[in-house]
């Protein structure tokens, strides 16, 4: 285990009120003709969380809730519109400018078919970060390291000579993980790493990721839409809805006592494999457009507990026992 794990009070990553807005206006000419104003998509709109070293924070939510945007914000693929991200206590833009700091963060992506350059051999794909950061110079040493990494993720060093199309989805995801590990990172952002995989392969990848975390003391930001998957890997979980966190709680606490009505609705919506015969009551309606979100609490049109206050006043995250919840009903004890 690394010294980093569990040492000191500085979290691996700290996000303070981060936001990212996208300009989705039509081109100027069309806008003038149609007399429309600018339109802004608030993909992420004021999120605060921290991830202590050696732990996993998961963000869950339905498509369009902004979870993948958060993943890209914290590794600097997008710039923030507002707020700050601290990487190991240092401002992210400074950390990104320093190659040693940059090598400490890596990302794993969702689509195993798009995340590997189809024209490159696996050995070059995995070695890319090693070469980019100049970690090893000698060709032989690089080859040996790639072989070691491939073995670590359950592939053979001989696989290095092949091209990505010769591998199945699960194997490609292993290659992605090997590439991410090759710069000896401490912080991994995983954007839906298993949602494109079959369930038996998903189990392989989840097991591998847990094993690597224990062995290498990694810190994960895990993005997923699947609550059952999230439960298996997380220390803490944040539930997102329309660009905001609605609940942030330790994993067990979230599943034992979901507080926010949306969290409860999500859990209610998952088909029951155990077939205990319980009648599910699916939440009605659909996720509104993030371009013109409803006023007040954005969940109020679908919320069974909504009242007049919810329709006008935006709820903020407030502590509720060991969790943080943004809900007027919970705060007032109506939940």
């Amino acid at each position: 285990m690394r010294a980093a794990a569990g040492s000191g009070a500085t979290p691996m990553l700290e996000a303070q009120d981060i936001a990212r807005h996208f300009d989705v206006s039509k081109p100027v000419l069309q806008r003038l003709i149609a007399r429309e104003g600018r339109r802004t998509l608030r993909a992420v709109d004021g999120l605060s969380f921290d991830i202590p070293k050696g732990t996993t924070l998961s963000l869950v939510g339905e498509s369009g809730c902004g979870k993948s945007t958060v993943a890209r914000l914290v590794v600097g693929l997008y710039g923030t519109t507002r707020g700050t991200v601290l990487f190991d206590g240092q401002d992210l833009s400074q950390a990104r400018a320093d190659s040693t700091q940059r090598s400490r963060m890596q990302m794993i992506f969702q689509d195993p078919y798009a995340s590997l350059n189809p024209r490159w051999r696996v050995v070059d794909i995995v070695a890319e970060p090693i070469r980019a950061f100049g970690l090893l110079k000698d060709r032989k040493a690089i080859l040996a390291r790639v072989g070691e990494l491939l073995t670590q993720v359950g592939l053979s060093p001989l696989d290095g000579q092949k091209y990505p199309h010769e591998f199945s989805g699960g194997q490609r995801q292993r290659i992605s993980i090997a590439r991410a590990l090759s710069s000896n990172p401490e912080f991994l952002v995983c954007d839906e790493p298993t949602s494109a995989l079959d369930v038996s392969v998903q189990a392989q990848i989840l097991n591998l990721m847990k094993e690597l975390q224990q062995r290498l003391g990694l810190t994960y930001l895990f993005i997923s839409h699947n609550l059952a998957v999230v439960r298996q890997v997380s220390d803490r979980i944040g539930v997102m809805y329309l660009g905001k966190l609605v609940e942030l709680a330790p994993a067990e606490s979230l599943f034992e006592r979901p507080r926010h009505p949306y969290t409860r609705a999500l859990m209610e919506a998952i088909p029951d494999l155990e077939m205990t015969g319980r009648q599910r009551i699916p939440v009605g309606g659909e996720v509104p457009s993030p371009i013109s979100p409803p006023p007040g609490c954005t969940f109020h049109p679908r919320c069974p507990l909504a009242n007049a206050r919810c329709r006008v006043e935006v709820p903020v995250m407030k502590p509720a026992l060991d969790a943080m919840v943004a809900c007027h009903a919970v705060e007032e004890g109506r939940g």
Partner: peptide, 13 residues
Amino acid sequence: NKEYVQAARVIGL
């Protein structure tokens, strides 16, 4: 917009 390009950007190429 493919993820392999994003992966290269994360490295900082």
